[in-house]
Amino acid sequence: MERSDNRRISKHKLWITLGVIVVALLYFIRLPFYLTMPGHAITISPMVEVGADEDVKQGELMLTTISMSRNETNLVEYALGSFKDYWELYPAEELRMDGESDEEYNQRQLLLMENSKEKATYAAFTAAGQPVERILEDALISYIKPGAPAEKHLAIGDNVKAIEGEPVNDETDLSNAVTALGEGDRIRLTIERDGRERNVEVPITKGVLNDVEKPMIGVGLTMNYSVTSDPEVVIKSEEIGGPSAGLMFSLEIYSRLVDQDITRGRSIAGTGTIDFAGSVGAIGGIKQKVVAADNAGADVFFAPRSGDNFKDADATAKDIQTAMTIVPVDTLEDAIHYLEALEPVA
């Protein structure tokens, strides 16, 4: 009898051990995917200060977010992302640059947000017809592709001061110069590192970017601008990363500058990058952002027309049967003109 009891205890311990192993495998084995899901629609007004102004809107402007796992998915998360509506899995290589760590990716997203604020401020002041200035402060090397020619000549944090002897003025200057010289040539850069300037020559090779083969040296630049405006603009975005709130920040700043309720008493959500000229660019995760805006009760959702953004947003709106109006925009002016044509809510 004692031997039978011992066998039962041993089997029980074995099953417990196997259970612990299975749980460990489910939660601790990582797959090269990130899980995204609908996030939130966040009222922008408390985040933005334009001088000592007060918000005059009866309605609200909202930026939209997605929720994303900070690390690569485990098996449980992968399973959830495979069957839950509007939960999506993105291969790591589509989000992170080659060789980029999770922490480096998150830091890059925060830098993109900071750049987006400067562009949003400049675009809003320009649209409102008010004076604003911008100065390029730094053109920092923020990414170096492993194995690329730049790896032997440049370092993360190098400040590119000149390209082929010409000062850097725009974020496209480097790629344009590399393309003009072509594969097999060398490009001469003046960089600042540790407070000292030096000249380096970097060989140009051929690589693939967005499925297009083109000349490159294998670096990413982060352009830091300072925008001077009166009144001064302060945007407190906390830990929100990425450039996709640019359009909505611009609308919020614009509404303060013109001292009007451009929402006409409605809840206006949306997404899209913004550049200094006020052009609106495509973003990722637009399906989840439409769901987030609908969950928050938005009346209107601005979607970039470029890429498949508007098509995907419109299809999602029909799928979830929202009463929210999906509005395609190419520019900040498009969004402003749409809002100006709305009748105020009684």
Rank of each mutant, 00 (worst) to 15 (best):
I42A: 01
Y27Q: 10
E72P: 01
V50F: 07
G265D: 10
L89F: 09
M223P: 00
V234I: 08
A124Q: 05
Y34T: 06
I156Q: 03
I156E: 07
L189D: 04
L26S: 03
N224T: 09
V22M: 15
E114L: 09
L89H: 10
S279F: 10
S267V: 13
M68N: 00
D5N: 12
L26E: 06
A127F: 07
I42P: 00
F33G: 05
L342A: 07
L247A: 06
G265H: 05
D261R: 00
A41D: 07
D55Y: 09
P344V: 09
G129M: 09
F33H: 11
A180Y: 08
M47L: 15
L342T: 07
A162Y: 02
V22K: 04
A92Y: 01
T121Q: 11
Q109T: 12
L14N: 14
M223A: 11
Q109H: 06
P231R: 06
L25C: 15
M216R: 04
I44E: 06
L112W: 08
S267D: 09
D261S: 02
V50L: 09
G242H: 02
E49H: 10
R193C: 13
V280C: 07
I326C: 03
K11D: 14
I9M: 13
A298L: 05
R188Q: 14
T331A: 06
L257W: 03
A293T: 03
K84M: 14
V56H: 05
M47G: 05
N210W: 11
N71F: 14
T126E: 13
K84I: 15
S226V: 13
E114F: 01
A323M: 07
E192A: 08
E164F: 02
D259E: 13
G307P: 03
L251R: 00
V329Y: 01
A120I: 03
D308C: 00
A148R: 02
E164G: 11
N159G: 08
E171D: 11
E238F: 04
L110A: 10
A346G: 14
K214D: 10
S116G: 04
D294A: 13
G147C: 09
T17P: 01
V300Y: 12
A282N: 08
R70S: 15
L35G: 11
E118L: 04
I283Q: 09
E2D: 12
Y86C: 03
P243F: 05
Q260G: 00
D85R: 13
L95Y: 04
V200Y: 04
I21K: 00
N71E: 15
Q107M: 10
T316K: 02
V227N: 02
L154V: 09
K318R: 12
D211C: 01
A41F: 03
D55E: 13
K119D: 10
T126K: 14
K311H: 10
